[in-house]
Nucleic acid binder design. Structure first.
Length: 356
DNA sequence: CATCCGTGGGT
DNA sequence: TACCCAAGGAT
């Protein structure tokens, strides 16, 4: 292929057709970094309001470094993959402490930061600093697999190296930022997973898949295994003052450090309401009256897991939560300042709608 | 390397 | 409905 023609056709198209996105207003390394972390496995339309709110609240790297944990989880609430914001916070504090607040501009140093993998390193270095380092994400693998007829399985981690080398080989050194962004923008707007718009593609004359008519066969991607299923019983428990009992989740694993209503995993077919009373009594030394009928059944799908949560109302009779660091009674106003997973937000909304 | 880690939208 | 997908990284 004619590399120079490919590069200029691609970048000229990007200059004309790129979307007007909030993170494209400047190349501040901190802001670029924030946007790239938010965009990991997350759609542009979803990210936009979160990005704007985030930078309104934390306009500088120092402002974010000085934020507290509850605060950063609350601003990320609903965005998913919550370890991203905790890793970003850890990394930003390190940049402020060890680099005087200046985001490192070498691949070696920036890659040491928590949550910065090969993609994010390449994206920040090219977009914020103009470094000719590829930023290989799912879009880029799809586009390059078609342009260069690469048949490596993009679901395999080992394949990323193939595409990084390909990206280096095609790199437009006059403008690495636009080159990397153009590959991703092409993947998002034209070279889509299904039904690619080849007739509108600015680089179709450089595309080997289009030439052979096999664009719909690429990229090669093996499908992943299906999700497992869990049944949960949860309780929205009020004490005599009307405060709600909530529990802070474990600091590791699924939905780490977010808040939830007390709940337990149950074996399907045995999920009787009495289990909740036993659970509260045994686990937390709390006596309560639990309504026999659940007020909502929430179905929630994660990437590798599906939850069915039966939520019941309950009233506290007696007991105290001393000794249970993760438990807290809060007012409704306090509750709404804390970060809950979407599944428990659904339960809370249903509770408020159905309870006076 | 395979699995875990969220969510909402598209087909 | 049941998948698949979207600017990935940590373990």
């Amino acid at each position: 292929m004619n590399k120079e023609a490919f590069q200029t056709d691609l970048v000229h198209w990007f200059q004309e057709e790129q979307r007007d996105l909030p993170w494209r207003k400047n190349n501040n390394p901190y802001k670029v970094w924030v946007s790239e972390v938010m965009l990991q496995q997350t759609r542009v339309d979803t990210v936009i309001p979160y990005y704007n709110r985030f930078l309104e609240k934390f306009p500088t790297i120092e402002a974010f470094a000085n934020a507290g944990e509850e605060e950063i989880l609350k601003i990320w609430e609903g965005l998913g993959y919550y370890s991203r914001v905790r890793n970003l916070h850890t990394a930003v504090k390190e940049v402020v402490a060890d680099y005087g607040g200046k985001v490192p501009d070498s691949k070696e140093e920036i890659s040491k930061l928590k949550g910065v993998g090969p993609y994010t390193a390449g994206a920040v270095l090219s977009i914020a600093y103009g470094k000719p380092i590829p930023a290989v994400d799912g879009n880029v693998m799809r586009v390059l697999s078609r342009i260069l007829l690469i048949t490596d399985d993009i679901a395999k981690p080992a394949s990323r190296k193939t595409f990084e080398i390909a990206g280096e080989g095609l790199m437009y050194h006059d403008n690495p930022s636009y080159f990397n962004q153009a590959l991703m923008e092409l993947g998002a707007l034209i070279c889509t997973p299904t039904s690619p718009a080849c007739l509108l593609c600015p680089v179709r004359e450089h595309c080997q898949a289009f030439e052979k008519g096999v664009q719909d066969e690429l990229p090669v991607k093996t499908r992943k295994k299906s999700t497992r299923h869990e049944d949960l019983l949860a309780v929205v428990l009020k004490d005599k003052e009307g405060k709600i009992l909530i529990n802070k989740r474990n600091e590791k694993g699924l939905l780490a450090n977010l808040w939830e209503f007390p709940n337990l995993k149950v074996v399907p077919l045995l999920d009787k309401w009495e289990i909740l009373q036993d659970f509260l009594s045994t686990e937390y030394s709390i006596d309560a009256v639990i309504e026999q009928e659940s007020f909502i059944e929430v179905q929630h799908v994660f990437t590798h897991l599906t939850w069915k949560i039966d939520a019941h109302r309950g009233k506290l009779k007696s007991g105290n939560i001393e000794g249970h660091e993760s438990l807290r009674f809060v007012t409704e106003e306090e509750l709404e300042e804390l970060a809950f997973p979407v599944s428990y937000q659904k339960i809370w909304r249903a509770y408020k709608e159905q309870t006076q």
